[in-house]
Computed example of a mutant assay.
Amino acid sequence: MTTDVLDTGVDTIRTGLLGGGFMARVHAAAARAAGSPLIALASSTPARAAEAARRLGAERSEADAGALVAASDIDIVHVCTPNATHAAYALAALTAGRHVVCEKPLATSAADARRLVEAAADAGVVAAVPFVYRYHPMVREARARVARGEVGTLLSVQGAYLQDWLLAASDDDWRADTAAGGPSRAFADIGSHLCDLLEFVAGEPIVRLTAVTRRVFDRRGGHAVGNEDIAALTVELRSGAVGSLLVSQMAPGRKNGLVLELHGSSESLRFAQEQPEELWVGGRRGSQLLLRDPATADPSSARLQRMPAGHPMGYQDAFDGFVADVHAAVRGEAPDGLPTFADGLRAAVLAEAVLASAARREWIEVAP
């Protein structure tokens, strides 16, 4: 089943939101920046939905997810609920003919993610996953340098995504409950971003990996949990480039330390998400720090730059750029680099490979 943008014309894409937490706030702001009215919100209970609708400025709340996806005045549904609910809610929205933005992980298993990719294709709608770090302009600058051959032959990669919000034994969150968060936590939550960024910038997939994981504490009130605090990977890319990736939610002082470094035969590139205005370009005879500037940027980077040089852009700007591209796709355009449900499936495949490698202590082949 396919729906067009309903009644109001192609210039107005009306948003429904599932969830009322931090990510719902980010999604709501991005939808508004794209010119989309926030029509309705549903949450875990009608009371929570009503409170979140007031806080986020939705026109109304709905009793539950079923009522929201069935509403005739909603064109696109954003799924910002606990991980284990993503697949069912996204499928319900697709079945109703809605366009869908679903938070990662798209599903807690690759099989469920694959079914969602197929359902989106059958419905003929736009289905996207917010791997929004692609939308930092200096990430696009790095990608363009790789594509132009300026890096040379890719030799190695190094990356990390480090946080500290689960450092203490007393720190807890629903993500630490495998029933709500899924079998992988640190990797599925933030390692998926790191791997997506790596494959996006390098322009080639990880084909083999070996991983170790560590769960430092049993959380959830002392009950044992099955998902990891830390994951360390050695990876091989299709070209033969090798790399090391570290993912941790227990690195003191690291709040959102996403860093990617690529080493080629001609130059190296380093992007750090906490310094998103910069791209370090390393050379044997000298290095330079490129600063974001739409006047000198590659066109793929310049199109995302909504502020003049010297006026910092950050995470919400990247998210706004992502949602703007989703809306462009709804209108029939084909934005470069839009992360779709296929990319969400890719992340689920990698997460299962990481868990399998850690359990079996062996290399895992990963299909591209």
Rank of each mutant, 00 (worst) to 15 (best):
P312Q: 00
S301W: 01
D320Q: 04
T296V: 13
A302E: 03
D298F: 04
M307R: 13
V281D: 06
R292M: 13
Q316A: 09
S300R: 14
D320W: 05
G282L: 07
P308K: 05
L289T: 15
P312F: 06
H311Y: 08
S300W: 00
S300L: 06
A297V: 08
M307W: 07
P312K: 06
G314H: 11
F319K: 02
D293I: 11
G310W: 06
A318H: 02
P308Q: 05
F319H: 01
G314C: 03
S300Q: 13
R306C: 01
D317W: 03
S300A: 15
S287E: 15
P299I: 05
E274V: 05
P294M: 01
A297N: 03
Q288C: 08
Q288A: 14
D320H: 00
T296H: 07
A302C: 00
L290I: 15
M307Q: 14
R284C: 09
L304Y: 01
R285Q: 14
Q275K: 08
D317I: 00
S300K: 08
D298N: 11
L290T: 11
R306H: 04
T296P: 04
P299N: 08
D320E: 09
Q316E: 05
Q288S: 14
M307I: 00
D320G: 03
A318L: 03
L290K: 05
G314K: 06
P299M: 09
G282A: 08
Q316S: 09
Q275H: 08
F319Y: 04
S287I: 10
V281F: 07
D293K: 10
S301R: 00
G310V: 05
L279I: 01
A309G: 11
T296I: 11
P299G: 01
P294F: 04
G310M: 06
D317V: 05
R284N: 11
G286M: 13
A318N: 04
R306F: 01
R292H: 04
P299H: 05
S301Y: 08
V281T: 11
D317M: 05
D293T: 12
D298P: 07
S301H: 01
G283P: 07
Q275P: 01
W280E: 05
A297S: 11
S287Q: 13
P299A: 09
M313F: 01
A295M: 10
E278M: 11
A302D: 02
L291Q: 14
D317Y: 02
P299W: 07
Q288E: 14
E278N: 10
A297F: 02
M307S: 12
P276V: 02
G310F: 07
G314A: 14
M307N: 08
S300Y: 04
Q305F: 01
Q288M: 12
R303H: 08
G283H: 12
L291E: 14
P308C: 04
A309N: 03
G283D: 13
Q305D: 13
A318Y: 01
L304A: 01
M313W: 02
R292Y: 05
S300I: 00
R306D: 02
